[in-house]
Design a protein around this nucleic acid. Structure first.
Lengths: 187, 187
DNA sequence: ATTAGGCTATACAGGTTAGTATAATTAAGC
DNA sequence: GCTTAATTATACTAACCTGTATAGCCTAAT
């Protein structure tokens, strides 16, 4: 991959997170990345295309990191579910955390026709599906229900944590998650 | 109050919710409200001012409806906390539900300098504070912690419900809320 | 009927944005 | 040293958006 392409992607990702997607112009991105519009439009068909690639890369990175973390640090399926939120907290509070793109993207692109909205809602669905599969392996009866509840907590916490940095939302989300997991396991 | 002013407010509220705030131009608003820009700018200093008033009205309506509902349908403080999510579900699934403005507004205006961001984060804080006061009256030890958890669930559920209409997110959020409330009450 | 106030219609200024065209510049390979 | 390819620099178009200016219209009260 071209290093300039990567630079544009990471710069855009950072700006989208801190300034918002719609309020970040292409000119701002290329200036911050130390390149020009011509180069950006060589690698990306349009701004929308760039947004989609930023979202995809961010989601892939997170999913890869999370499943690797779970697979190498736990053995039992029930243990994975228990440690899920510990690792999520680790991700969210890590210094290079650039936000969960799909959460904000769906808010900035509320129209269901928008490809950006479609991709981010698909990613949200995928994440919920992943939690559900963990719950299923741990032989939880209503695995989908628990997965939905945990993803609600997760999305709410990420948003709150970004709204007021250091609000401790993730800590309480973690506690709530453990209560819900234990409650679902005893049925 | 002028009926035209009210019409502009309600029209803007509806459009902001369905199309997003930033992607809804004033021309679109006045066309949908059946008036002209001159009239809009007679009643509102700027678009930003209109956004702030829409947010304020929506939040006031919700808070008034919710506390009235709680006060007239419950007696004991613990009962209020228990029924909180039942009423929230009623509000969210009601046909004239126009969304929780402050949740999306903070996402569309991520810069902390923005007055819109400041107002919506203040409203989010107020809502959490209200839940906390209910929890306090019910003699829950960690009232703030429970309030934070419940507001996470709430914000997550509203967003999910809007992302995929009829996802049943609110139903599961309600169940999770009851588990968390009961867990917090026995400490 | 006429006057006055609110509303409409329309055009426009000023700024911002995505995206393109064109030419100059750099750097690497032979 | 020359060619080739990639990147830069800069200017521009076309669309869009907020906010304003100006003139005309309609209705209600006197």
């Amino acid at each position: 991959m071209s290093p300039l392409r990567e630079k544009i992607l990471s710069t855009a990702s950072h700006l989208f997170q801190t300034q918002g997607i719609n309020s970040t112009g292409v000119d701002t991105i290329v200036a911050a990345a130390g390149t020009t519009k011509m180069t950006l439009y060589k690698y990306f068909r349009s701004k929308e295309n760039l947004i989609l690639e930023v979202l995809e890369e961010g989601h892939k990175d997170f999913q890869a990191w999370l499943s690797e973390k779970l697979n190498s640090n736990t053995s039992q399926p029930s243990e994975k579910l228990q440690k899920l939120f510990d690792f999520i907290e680790e991700w969210v509070t890590s210094p290079n955390f650039r936000g969960m793109g799909f959460i904000k993207a769906s808010a900035e692109f509320p129209s269901e026709d928008s490809p950006v909205h479609q991709l981010s809602s698909e990613q949200s669905r995928q994440f919920k599906q992943y939690i559900s599969s963990l719950a299923h392996e741990a032989h939880i009866q209503d695995a989908d229900g628990l997965a939905l509840q945990l993803s609600l907590l997760f999305e709410g916490a990420v948003q709150a944590e970004q709204m007021i940095r250091g609000s401790g939302a993730m800590t309480y989300a973690k506690k709530a998650a453990k209560i819900l997991i234990n409650g679902a396991a005893t049925h």
